[in-house]
């Protein structure tokens, strides 16, 4: 149990996917200008990442590994992620109109989020078992959400701030992201092995 908790905390804070591993930077910069959209994106990503890491574990350990086809993982995982995203979109659209309105536009965007493929591949390289895979996927998504929402809150503040002209817009956002990354590096000392 402690192991799982450690893995979760480690993934959310210490090895944060966005700020430490630098995965999923595109949505991090892209949808962080408003907190509302950032929250929508966070929920959608959490859902898809957890499901995708679960499914890609199953596909890998029950189909690819027994047949000795590990070199096909990247291709197969992309397939899995695309299907999960499409399927989720259809189910959400049918079952909950409210949730669809909240997540709708963000779901297709997640297909191209490299953090989702990253989590599936890292599960493989770090030889996680079934539960570890799910927790790793969930933790990575929670870390992504945490950072995305914090960043969007900061950007909303920045929009009103008196930023020097050369730093306006994306430039100051990049600097903010860099400072956040530095701050998150501090979590490296959190878990002592």
């Amino acid at each position: 149990m402690t192991d799982y908790l450690l893995l979760l905390v480690g993934t959310v804070l210490v090895n944060n996917f966005v700020l430490v591993k630098f995965l999923g930077l595109c949505p991090f910069m892209g949808v962080s200008s408003k907190t509302e959209t950032a929250i929508g994106m966070s929920f959608a990503t959490t859902f898809v990442m957890t499901l995708a890491s679960l499914l890609s574990y199953i596909v890998n350990s029950y189909v690819l590994a027994p047949l000795g086809l590990e070199y096909l993982t990247t291709m197969t995982f992309i397939l899995v992620i695309a299907v999960v995203v499409q399927f989720t979109e259809m189910v959400v659209h049918k079952t909950s109109a409210n949730l669809y309105r909240l997540l709708g536009i963000f779901l297709p965007l997640i297909t191209t989020n490299c953090a989702v493929l990253g989590v599936a591949l890292l599960n493989l390289y770090e030889q996680h078992n079934f539960f570890e895979s799910i927790i790793y996927g969930f933790g990575a998504a929670v870390g992504f959400s945490l950072v995305l929402i914090m960043f969007s809150a900061m950007r909303e503040k920045l929009a009103n701030a008196d930023v020097p002209t050369p730093f306006k817009g994306s430039a100051i956002a990049m600097i903010t992201a860099g400072l956040m990354s530095l701050a998150f590096m501090g979590f490296t000392g959190l878990v002592k092995f």
Partner: peptide
């Protein structure tokens, strides 16, 4: 390999 990916 082709068969497996095809089936999936």
């Amino acid at each position: 390999a082709i068969l497996v990916v095809g089936v999936i």
